[in-house]
Design a protein around this nucleic acid. Structure first.
Lengths: 256, 256
DNA sequence: TCAAAAGTGTTTAGCTTACACCCATGT
DNA sequence: ACATGGGTGTAAGCTAAACACTTTTGA
């Protein structure tokens, strides 16, 4: 019950937080225990982290607050992607039980502004007490039934991620500061759900200028040690078009 | 005062409605007359059409309702693009005067879900009485000071349009069913704010398969009559990638 | 010595780009 | 006849795509 007197009962933000570890794209969820009077066993329900928006807070601030309370991280890639406002989105019975235990006005219609966050999951300090709830990383293909319309929100976020990763250099936000070409390619293959040619991938990434090689290499690996690279955030942001080159699977190139 | 008892005081939709006529991209605005007790002359303030969301209405429905009440049109290209929720977005004094004359709860914080509509302006039947206000088509480079944060919303919409028109075959939504290559190219040049090569443009459009030539030609023009084309909506939607080919100004092509 | 992932070039095909002249119509 | 916009083809350069072997390390 993280309430202050100034929560707007009708507007919330929810965060779809993506991370990448062990060659798998993962989603950060919170786990709620819902008292069930009939069975005396708590129901379990997973949900996207989110909260009502405070009256003096703008939407980006609200989403950043939710993210920071949960992970301890600030300055993260976090972008609004869609707003959900179906009148029945919070009407399922399990959801209502939880709302009644937490909200002052559980019947209020709530529209939610959904954000997508990309984080280096190694950086996360999960703050277990922050929402009085457990947090878990779930592989994106093992996402369980979620509260409210959160399954739909997550699916829309994943689509948005797939699209944007092909237009903008945002994949790097999911990796540590130093990463290998193998990690980077594996990340793109995971998100795009298809194999990429190693030589062509490397060439494009290097030629784009958005990453730079370090002299440092892996140590302690039982194969040829890979070189580390870093993302040139400033370069990429000042050259919004000369990123790397994408084709949907037909092609996409502007007029002349 | 189009109020019913069931308006949510905290959530609205606003529509940025683009049209194209006389080689110019235009914005559909409503004009409000605001009583000013000091001068006895009404202040004039333009605004994006919008309304509070009804309690039993989802967001898309609400935006479609606003659009239909204003233009008499249904089944229009209308897409959510961003949500605006700065706590001070409705705090300017002119805005407050208007709110006080129209809203039950003029102090309520309102977040607004912004939609972008593309319409064939020839189809519009402006319904002057619908909002008890005048509607006007304004060239996008002559947009006056607008109510609330509507100038910002409009600018974001224009950016979104520029981006999307390069990714998706949506330009056609702004043209009549039958159009000439000249009109189509002029539309793209207007939106993208740069000249395009005539021969290359025609080739790409034809090769993309999203438009088909008719045998019909212009009549009564004082130059060689142009052939008409139609947009293959079904084809374009079932071939999301084989649209036409865009390049931002560097290039954009996927991995392999 | 074996397993595992890193690293490296070349060729072909297709697309993008740049560019200039004739055509059909109404006035 | 002239003004206006419509309509057409080609050559050069670039990028994408497909493809296989050697290297380095730890076990």
């Amino acid at each position: 019950m993280s309430s202050t007197p100034s929560l707007n009962p009708h507007v919330s933000t929810d965060c779809v937080i993506f991370g990448f570890s062990q060659e798998t794209l993962r989603l950060l969820l919170i786990r709620r225990n819902i008292p069930n009077r009939l069975t005396e066993v708590n129901d379990v329900l997973y949900a996207l982290p989110g909260d009502l928006v405070k009256d003096d807070e703008n939407l980006d601030t609200s989403a950043n607050r939710v993210l920071a309370e949960l992970t301890g991280l600030k300055g993260i890639y976090l972008t609004q992607f869609q707003t959900f406002g179906d009148p029945l989105r919070i009407a399922k019975s399990k959801d209502r039980a939880w709302l009644e235990s937490v909200r002052q006005d559980p019947d209020a219609r709530v529209i939610t502004v959904a954000y997508m966050a990309l984080i280096d999951s190694q950086k996360v300090n999960l703050q277990p007490g922050s929402f009085s709830e457990e947090t878990v990383w779930v592989p994106i293909h093992e996402v369980p039934e979620l509260a409210f319309d959160h399954n739909e929100i997550y699916e829309q976020a994943l689509s948005a991620l797939k699209e944007r990763v092909q237009m903008q250099p945002i994949g790097f936000e999911l990796l540590p500061e130093k990463f290998t070409m193998g990690q980077l390619q594996s990340l793109y293959e995971t998100i795009l759900e298809r194999d990429l040619d190693k030589r062509n991938f490397r060439r494009k990434m290097i030629n784009s200028g958005v990453i730079s090689p370090l002299t440092e290499k892996q140590i302690g690996v039982s194969n040829k040690p890979a070189r580390y690279y870093v993302y040139n955030r400033e370069f990429a942001q000042s050259n919004p078009s000369s990123i790397f080159n994408l084709r949907m699977d037909g092609s996409f190139t502007l007029f002349n």
